[in-house]
Design a protein around this nucleic acid. Structure first.
Lengths: 171, 171
DNA sequence: GTTAGTGCAAACCTTTTGCAGCTCT
DNA sequence: AGAGCTGCAAAAGGTTTGCACTAAC
């Protein structure tokens, strides 16, 4: 795999393919989706203990600028860092469970439709889109209901929850 | 307007309506959309010079948690700060021009459709959604083309990528 | 009078920058 | 050979926290 898609793409632009970049590109390409800089750094350091965190950031910036990776926030479900995924895939939305952190991807025609509508409606030239949906996955909904019930029982005035119901005031 | 929607909403939850919060709520409610914490702070300070930046952050966190405002990233077109808008409006996408920074809002049925599809497909309980579209607005497309032409003329190897600027190197 | 909320300072976390030395082409 | 890239240290930007004081209820 001397010249995978991404690597070749870099070479074509006269961007040097250093050992560090090779490591990072392979990690991003292979290790699935939604890595943040720190995780990527941790993984990269196992292959090259000298590789610096700064190099990770610089490489990510380079790839983002080159349109090879997309930057995600995933609704900041776990902090303010960014997440990255290679841009080879079809347009998709990210569905993030705010309780367990699981991230699903959704490919649907409504995304393409939205894209077309925006292009038409505004005469807009779209370069990138980001759709993130937050809530509770089917598994966590049940657990969540249980948590709420317990909280309502135990506390006089528990904190107002992200959105829907506010626990009954006990006065 | 002693008890506008937002203020009343806070009172109901037993959250104190302080002078600082009153100022911030009015600013957020009135001054349109897409304020970041720093701008909000600047505006608030004009009304109360003692009001602290920290209070802005704490208030925003409170409102976000209470579902009264939504937090946006706007694709980080101008840095890593967050933007806020009141949650009274219908679901909409943000269309961000990466050149001039103009932000448009798009209300369309494809958004509702996506929402329904995700709920169905994953059995997901949606609490919030965020759709951001980046690119060039109709006005900036022309300017952009001109910029690229100029760059191509000056540089040896211009890039086909829309996103990458790469100014000509002068050696 | 209580308790939540505020201001201040300082910490924190993620990301960027300056610079000297190293390395890919 | 030389520009581009890296590592290191330090800074920057945005946001959060600890604590004593203040003010809303």
């Amino acid at each position: 795999m001397a010249t995978s898609g991404t690597k070749g793409s870099l070479r074509e632009r006269g961007i040097r393919l250093t050992r560090q970049r090779e490591i990072l590109l392979e990690l991003i390409d292979q290790s699935g989706k939604h890595l943040d800089a720190e995780s990527l750094f941790q993984m990269a350091q196992k292959r090259d203990p000298k590789l610096n965190r700064v190099t990770v950031y610089r490489t990510l910036k380079l790839l983002k600028k080159g349109g090879l990776v997309d930057e995600l926030d995933l609704l900041h479900y776990d902090g303010d860092q960014h997440y990255y995924e290679t841009r080879t895939k079809q347009e998709h939305a990210h569905i993030i469970c705010l309780r367990c952190g699981k991230v699903e991807e959704y490919f649907g025609d409504s995304l393409q439709k939205l894209r077309r509508q925006v292009e038409e409606h505004f005469g807009f030239q779209i370069l990138l889109t980001r759709t993130e949906v937050g809530g509770y996955c089917s598994h966590c909904q049940a657990l969540r209901a249980r948590e709420l019930a317990a909280a309502a029982e135990a506390a006089a005035v528990p904190l107002p929850e992200p959105k829907d119901k506010r626990p009954a005031r006990k006065v």
